[in-house]
Design a protein around this nucleic acid. Structure first.
Lengths: 330, 330
DNA sequence: ATGAAAGCGCTAACAA
DNA sequence: TTGTTAGCGCTTTCAT
């Protein structure tokens, strides 16, 4: 409200009758000051409402107390990314760090101690230049460009998709299609590859449509129609939101989901659980992924983890009604 | 890659054969240096890869080049908030500012030039203490606590709900229920009040259930069942996601949505457009709201807008099939 | 048109 | 155990 003079360390020291150094050490528990004076300084500090100036601290220490977070800027509205963000923020807070968002709209990058990159796109210029900057970078999923990040948190999407495909087959599916995401992320590439090798291993036909990352619903729906024309009996949708977008098309085609057509999504979300019928999905545990990325970054910064560390993050399959019933013969 | 010595202004000045001051002025176009030397300094700067140290700059200037953003920490996974965040980040970038997320998990707040508060909850302690801090605060929707923010961006939810209710009545609804959000936000309070006054003005019965902010789907569904038992013919769902959660319950009760029961949501989202049938909703234009909040904050910081400014942000109604057909008599 | 010097608030090295 | 001092990198007087 009122225009208050900010309380500096000097003001605090004067008020407490000690030197700058003592005040500083008292507040930071450096173990240099006597317990008596420490308590005194702390009490004066709270009375005056002192809080240290982070810019000054950063300048002196040569670090920033801040980590950067960059996400692909298309399709960032999704529940997945939002949860991921809060996972990162949470872990950063635990380590007394702030999180600033890094966007391509800004000419210059904020100075940060390290960077978390969610699902880096190969073509993302921000991602590539962050990778070559001096601050260590942890990516969620591998970076498909040239440079190597300092750390990677990844999940076994290949194995998980294979077990989803197994699940569909045991529910009677013989012609399972994959609505894939383009190969611009490691995740997208892994899914396509895993699908193809599963198909060839189990003698199933490859029924694949590929969509650019961030395609609108109409494009998704065209692709679904094309797959339906290829006489599929199960459909796995990779891009976030595409399973929801597929539903009306499947219904319009007269397919009864969970009965004469099985449906699953590679990205779980709340609405999938409320769909009619609820849709089987892979739970990517985005919040945990965010936490894991930030934690790895801090471990690298403190030297507890080596450069080049790769950590595995578990994911899960949520089986729902859309794949539960055995397929009726058509 | 390599451990590069960071390029400081002094190093740059030395390399360019000028003084610190000249280098600084050249890079910031202060109009002090000759065009010739400016060009020279700039070229050396890019060659050396110089970038100014934001901490030093902040310390000297007494500002931070950063704005804070705080969101309610329950239910923050929603598409609404994610879009809002990117609206804020976008406008901040345009003004050469970074955005750091403010969380309650952190003991101390980052120093920022100003703060945007999305949908502040009365009980949110972070929100209240930010309100009383020295940095100016802009809220999206009014703050229902004591203190006044420096600026407010709001929308006319009362009028929009009234026109939604009119829309439902003209589609034949006579007993329209509101599944409300608790009165902890201005938005929640406004909706309830608007509903009540519309009912009394048009002689319609008040059929209202109230849910705490961030209730799980099961609570939503219990409330929907309770409303169904009260013989409603139209249902308006306020909390984000509640309309999706209501759908399975309505179907299980044998209601045909858009035919013998109209359904609408107070918060639009992508899945609502793909639901069966697509669900009518109020489009809150979250990205534009975020942009507007940031813009107002910068206008206040630069003195272009006065303390206490309130700006109106338009919202829209998206009519879909869930309310299109005229109600069949039951 | 340019340079020199002061100093933003803090922490770390050096003294006492 | 505490105080004194230097300096992080930058912008802003003030002087030339």
């Amino acid at each position: 409200m009122s225009k208050e003079e900010p309380v500096t360390l000097i003001a605090l020291a004067r008020a407490a009758g000690v030197s700058k150094t003592t005040a500083s050490d008292a507040l930071r528990n450096s173990g240099r000051v006597s317990e008596r004076t420490r308590q005194h300084v702390v009490s004066v500090a709270t009375r005056l409402g002192y809080s240290p100036n982070p810019s000054a601290r950063s300048l002196r220490r040569g670090n920033t107390g801040t980590i950067g977070l960059h996400l692909p800027e298309i399709l960032t509205r999704s529940e997945y990314y939002m949860s991921f963000v809060f996972g990162v923020v949470d872990e950063a807070a635990r380590q007394d760090h702030d999180v600033t968002l890094i966007t391509s709209r800004r000419g210059t990058f904020p100075r940060v101690d390290g960077v978390v990159l969610g699902d880096p796109l190969e073509a993302d210029s921000v991602a590539s230049s962050l990778m070559t900057s001096s601050a260590p970078v942890v990516t969620c999923e591998r970076f498909t460009g040239d440079s190597e990040p300092a750390g990677v948190v990844r999940s076994d999407h290949a194995a998980m998709l294979a077990s989803l495909l197994d699940h569909l087959r045991s529910a009677g599916a013989r012609r399972t299609a994959l609505l894939a995401s383009s190969v611009v992320t490691d995740w997208g590439a892994t899914l396509q590859q895993s699908y193809r090798s599963w198909c060839s291993a189990s003698g199933a036909p490859v029924l694949l449509r590929d969509l650019p990352f961030g395609s609108p619903a109409s494009a998704v729906q065209d692709a679904v129609r094309a797959l339906l024309a290829a006489d599929v009996d199960a459909l796995v949708c990779a891009p976030d939101g595409s399973a929801m977008a597929a539903l009306p098309v499947l219904r319009a085609a007269g397919r009864r989901i969970g009965e004469d057509l099985l449906l699953a999504s590679c990205v779980d979300s709340t609405p999938l659980g409320h769909a009619d019928p609820p849709v089987t999905a892979i739970d990517l545990r985005p919040r945990e992924a965010g936490t894991a990325c930030a934690k790895l970054l801090f471990d690298i910064l403190t030297g507890e983890a080596e450069h080049g560390t790769v950590r595995e993050q578990p994911i899960g399959l949520v089986a729902r009604a859309s794949t539960s019933g055995h397929l009726a013969p058509r």
